[in-house]
């Protein structure tokens, strides 16, 4: 699974490690593999034994492909337990968040596409309207899922998804927990300006 250390090209290794360290704000080289993060990981049973310490070592060794595409990066729920317990203050959840973004920039297919689609739809709704509209963003999210499944002709999966969401939606409506109005913030212009700035920063 992991590339052997001897096969690592140091010239390629450094930029990836440096990138991850700078963007996540975490000092990955401080990790001495005590595995407290692994012991506390909320999704430890869900990641095929792919633990936070393993991810750190992988990035340090420069195994870019594996680091961007593994169950931990895509199953991590950002509960921040690993980082809270780390004796060296490495917040691995910030690393998984960083790797999610890097995978997207490299147009890699996420291991859990629904996770990426969800966060994209959520943030897009928040940025577009200034506030997140639950029905609108869930609609956008389900649409992305359906389009992807149409491509692979998995119509059963689309039906199952619709059934689950419709059931929840009906129950929420019955309990008056469904909101039918539309939320917006007038200050969207400020948010748009900040977003332009964010894009400029990314290209520099």
């Amino acid at each position: 699974m992991t590339a052997p250390a001897m096969a690592i090209n140091p010239n390629q290794t450094q930029p990836f490690l440096q990138q991850v360290m700078e963007r996540s704000g975490q000092n990955l080289t401080a990790c001495y593999q005590c595995r407290r993060c692994a012991a506390g990981c909320s999704v430890g049973d869900e990641t095929d034994y792919f633990t936070p310490n393993l991810l750190i070592r992988m990035v340090v060794l420069g195994d870019r492909d594996q680091a961007l595409s593994n169950q931990l990066v895509w199953k991590c729920v950002s509960c921040y337990t690993c980082g809270t317990r780390c004796p060296n203050d490495i917040q691995t959840a910030r690393i998984t968040e960083t790797l999610k973004k890097m995978a997207k920039e490299e147009h890699l297919e996420p291991l859990q596409p629904k996770v990426a689609e969800f966060h994209d739809a959520f943030v897009r709704s928040g940025l577009r309207w200034g506030r997140v509209n639950e029905m609108e963003f869930m609609g956008a999210y389900e649409m992305k899922f359906a389009l992807r499944k149409i491509k692979t002709r998995e119509f059963g999966a689309i039906m199952d998804e619709i059934k689950t969401q419709a059931r929840l939606g009906m129950e929420m409506t019955r309990l008056r927990r469904m909101h039918f109005g539309f939320l917006m913030a007038k200050g969207r212009k400020e948010i748009k300006a900040l977003q332009r700035k964010s894009k400029q920063r990314a290209t520099h």
């Binding site: 999610k100 928040g126 913030a185 900040l194 964010s198």
Partner: peptide
């Protein structure tokens, strides 16, 4: 006229906006 805080999603999509929102 408050806006969305970005919730836990923003940090996975855009770090700058996760602070700016």
């Amino acid at each position: 006229d408050w806006n969305c805080c970005g919730a836990t999603s923003a940090g996975k999509v855009d770090d700058f906006m996760a602070m700016a929102m």
